[in-house]
């Protein structure tokens, strides 16, 4: 274990409509075993003692699974490490004397609430448009009634691993939510249980995505590079396929 000192430039903004600006802080000694959020905790403890408001940031599980944390560190959503959420990013990946610019995820569809906290409810709204199988509790057949090739189950699991952190939107030059939507459409279209609704689902989720003001995908692949769960743009291709099939050939409106 060793210690480093950093300069932190953090976006501070009181509320959605207040003006925001960067504020610079000296980190003080930071153990390289700390996680990024623990580093912010340490800063916040100090700010609190000094009577200043701590930096607001979202987090919950701190295990890289709930998808609640996230900020842009030196231009990288969730920081520079691959396939790592901000809460799982450890300070040993930074060097003594580094300056870290920490900003919130930015997109028109993400309202900034305070400091690094943004409203990502658009992601939920897209799921509610069709990211489910319409099955009521109680009516399910035996779980083994339909076999699923393990390869499909694995591929579905790859897509279903999305934690809904919204970093893909933050990373996309167009603030597109394609990777997120693709992950869900792909997950369900790979399983027989998702088939009856696959056309409807693709159409509805994409149209909700468009309504919410996310951008269009131009295949920039930044989303995939930033995704902490390594969701591949292969799933975006599958979404495109599902959508075009539905739009051109299906009976659905």
């Amino acid at each position: 274990m060793s210690e480093i000192q950093l300069t932190l430039k953090i976006w501070r903004q009181k509320g959605p409509d207040a003006p925001g600006r960067f504020q610079t802080y000296a980190s003080g000694p930071i153990s390289t075993d700390m996680s990024f959020l623990e580093m912010l905790d340490v800063l916040n403890e100090r700010l609190t003692r000094e009577g200043e408001e701590p930096v607001a940031f979202d987090h919950d599980c701190r295990e890289g699974i709930c998808g609640m944390c996230g900020a842009v560190v030196n231009g990288h959503p969730h920081g520079p490490e691959k396939e790592t959420t901000l809460c799982q990013l450890h300070m040993r990946h930074f060097n003594d004397g580094d300056t870290l610019v920490i900003e919130p995820f930015r997109a028109r569809a993400y309202r900034l609430e305070k400091d690094l906290v943004v409203d990502r409810s658009g992601l939920d709204k897209m799921i509610s448009a069709g990211g489910f199988v319409s099955v009521n509790t109680g009516g399910a057949p035996d779980a083994n009634a339909i076999g699923i090739p393990p390869k499909n189950a694995e591929e579905a699991m790859d897509a279903a691993a999305c934690i809904g952190c919204g970093a893909c939107v933050a990373a996309c030059p167009n603030a597109s939510a394609m990777l997120f939507v693709a992950a869900k459409v792909s997950h369900l279209s790979l399983l027989p249980q998702g088939h009856p609704e696959r056309a409807r689902r693709a159409l509805d989720m994409v149209s909700r995505m468009d309504e919410l003001g996310f951008g269009n995908c131009s295949n920039e692949r930044e989303c995939e590079a930033a995704c902490p769960k390594g969701i591949s743009i292969r799933h975006i291709a599958r979404l495109n396929r599902e959508f075009l099939k539905a739009a051109i050939f299906s009976e659905e409106e």
Partner: peptide, 8 residues
């Protein structure tokens, strides 16, 4: 889709 740009 992204009215506010990133600083970095």
């Amino acid at each position: 889709a992204r009215p506010a740009r990133y600083a970095v």
